[in-house]
Design a protein around this nucleic acid. Structure first.
Lengths: 222, 222
DNA sequence: CGGATCTTTGAGTGATGTCAAGTGTTGTGG
DNA sequence: CCACAACACTTGACATCACTCAAAGATCCG
């Protein structure tokens, strides 16, 4: 269900939309927008995974969020986008020009409540992130992150292969750790038999209960 | 300017509103709501400072936000509030019953855009928090926090006394540090002549430039 | 004045960051 | 199909920063 199914995809960008009624199709590494660009569109992820990244002068990077199908990116910005956003996998997005929102709301006031709900979702996920960052140990953050990923991809159970489309550096910059610490923590989880790491791009939860114990604080699953 | 100036204050709570047209008056330590309460009202801070706190099973605490005049609390929750909120100082809040929002939006669709802006502000402040938490060193977090406080109270300059209504434990739990580390970092800032700490409840920036250098990454000032 | 609470300061420890080397994987061009 | 380069990931050794535990000031409030 799209909030604004009548909205035209934004054709002013370099990546041309492929009109198939399913929204714009983009390849991996496609940039949706850069920090500082005029925030003139919302993107609902239809398929694939996106990465929202903020880069600081000193070269440090924060991965603000990973966006999965159903998530909306480009919300909660003012005039300009506050971070870069690019695709980690081939993906599809539903684009809504921002100007259309006010218009749509005037026509269909009940949309306001949907927008409220969207806002709540966005704020909630930021809460989750800051909760994750406040957890003291690297292990807790990693465990929490993996549980959250499994939940978002509807594979929150034992022995299901969960895709891990982001690299270690992305995870590290998301959790405020180094790639070495991420690697060591994951290895430790593997050695303890809590997860399996069949290859770079995926993981399997072998003992969800213990993983959740490690994650400790209630992990909000979307 | 209030979004819903016609809204009646919520009279169902233990703290009775004092109807003076300026919203409800509350004393320090007054609880606006607890985590888990039905999220049926928004609160705009008119004066004073509030604290949003999340407490975990293991006893750890996260201070999700400090709310200053102009800030809106109670936004971005679903059915139930996601954290506790109480006053750090005597304060006034403008209360809007949540049911009134949908109603108000139907009547005045242009409100939708205001709500969008509110959501943007809420999301932005959560971004800022996670940025703060990702900064590696304790010093950067403290410096960033002090700069942010000075900005929010419109005293972002040298030699102005800025109120510090929250205790060290609140700061620590906000920044993901311990009170000892907070204390040591503040002392170090004082020794270096960057800030002055005339008493518990306030600080004075003596060298804004150096403080901002320590905070490094762009600190968004509200 | 005295107790309670908050804050500061000190000493020691441990987790995570840093630096560095080594292994594995992917993709390209011969 | 293989060789090689580029990149991603893992592992190890060491250093450092922040946490823990402990005690000693400050400040507040009766």
């Amino acid at each position: 269900m799209y909030l604004f199914p009548h909205a035209e995809p934004d054709t002013t960008r370099s990546e041309r939309p492929v009109g198939d009624g399913q929204g714009r199709v983009v390849g991996a590494t496609t940039v949706l927008f850069h920090e500082g660009d005029r925030a003139d569109a919302l993107y609902e992820v239809v398929s694939g995974v996106f990465r929202a990244t903020k880069i600081f002068q000193d070269g440090r990077r924060q991965v603000v969020a990973f966006a999965y199908p159903g998530d909306i990116v480009g919300f909660g910005h003012g005039e300009a986008y506050r971070f870069d956003c690019d695709a980690l996998t081939p993906a599809r997005v539903q684009v809504t020009a921002r100007g259309d929102i006010g218009q749509a709301m005037r026509q269909r006031p009940e949309l306001g409540e949907k927008i409220l709900a969207m806002a709540a979702g966005e704020v909630a996920s930021m809460h989750d992130l800051s909760v994750l960052l406040c957890r003291k140990s690297a292990m807790e953050r990693i465990a929490g992150f993996l549980v959250s990923l499994a939940g978002r991809t509807h594979k929150l159970g034992n022995d299901q292969r969960v895709s891990l489309p982001m690299c270690r550096a992305d995870i590290a910059d998301h959790l405020g750790l180094t790639i070495e610490t991420v690697s060591r923590s994951m290895t430790k989880l593997k050695v303890r038999g809590i997860v399996d790491l069949p290859d770079r791009g995926s993981f399997v939860i072998r003992d969800l209960e213990r993983l959740q114990e490690l994650a400790e604080c209630e992990t909000v699953v979307h």
